[in-house]
Design a protein around this nucleic acid. Sequence first.
DNA 1: TGACATATGCAACTAGGTTGCATATATTCG
DNA 2: CGAATATATGCAACCTAGTTGCATATGTCA
Lengths: 148, 148
Amino acid sequence: MFLSWIYMNYTAVQIIEFLRSRGHRITKVRSAMLKILAHNEKPLAVPELIERLKEAGIIVNKTTVYREIEFLQSQNMVKSIYLGEDKKRYELVGEDHHHHLICISCEKVEDVELSNDLTHEEKRIQKEKKFKIQRHSLEFFGLCRKCQ
Amino acid sequence: MFLSWIYMNYTAVQIIEFLRSRGHRITKVRSAMLKILAHNEKPLAVPELIERLKEAGIIVNKTTVYREIEFLQSQNMVKSIYLGEDKKRYELVGEDHHHHLICISCEKVEDVELSNDLTHEEKRIQKEKKFKIQRHSLEFFGLCRKCQ
DNA sequence: TGACATATGCAACTAGGTTGCATATATTCG
DNA sequence: CGAATATATGCAACCTAGTTGCATATGTCA
């Protein structure tokens, strides 16, 4: 079931069981963070994560959160992105390679996929520029439905 | 000559003359910063800018640099971007809408243009998601010719 | 239940960035 | 040219995100 982890979206509970099966300890911070990340509609930065934890009754030191994020990344459960800001945001790893629509008014973030991906462009660039592309980031900034 | 400023690339000296003609003072920090930005191959962050100024014999306080950047942005001479980092970088405004190839080994940055721009995708997204796109950012990360 | 590896908190630190206020300087005008 | 003055600059103090070392607490397994 978990062999093809990389290609699937799982719930917090499934991730927790997987980590437990690998011999990792399940603490209240760890499971709460996974639940928050799983239920949250947009990638979260550490200060926000700390706030959500507090709302859930868990007062936690920022050091702990940074180290937990580090751990979850090492387990390939979480990945980080920059959304045109000075801080990293984190989300659970998922199946699809998606991009983001970021509302410059209310800061809501939606996912979006391209109908034609950038593979063709990347091949062209690779050839013309002799630059070996490993990944890209693409975000759209503008106004969401409500804020227009 | 300067009416179509937005669509052209100018040299530091031309920008300086333009600012002077608009009644702005030309200080050694201002002209040095413009020269550094004009000659630099990649967008610069403030700490780097301070370093280059020092190399040019100009010891300057970071507050001054931040305020000068702010001024140059208000004059539409400089724009900021995030290149998947925690800090902003700055470059002179230019004619072409380009993207970046960022080497994850040596951190060199090259400009690149798409052969098909994203207009078509943006129209589709705008319609499907009811999201009014104002701008996008697209960067490619990988290995440059030398670092492969 | 105890042992022990792992998780957590705390304090001190770093780097990028901002603000208020006092001082210096580029330009304009007499 | 030399003053007046608006603008530019420096400084100190502050903020937020993120990191590190070390001591303490806790989840898990035997």
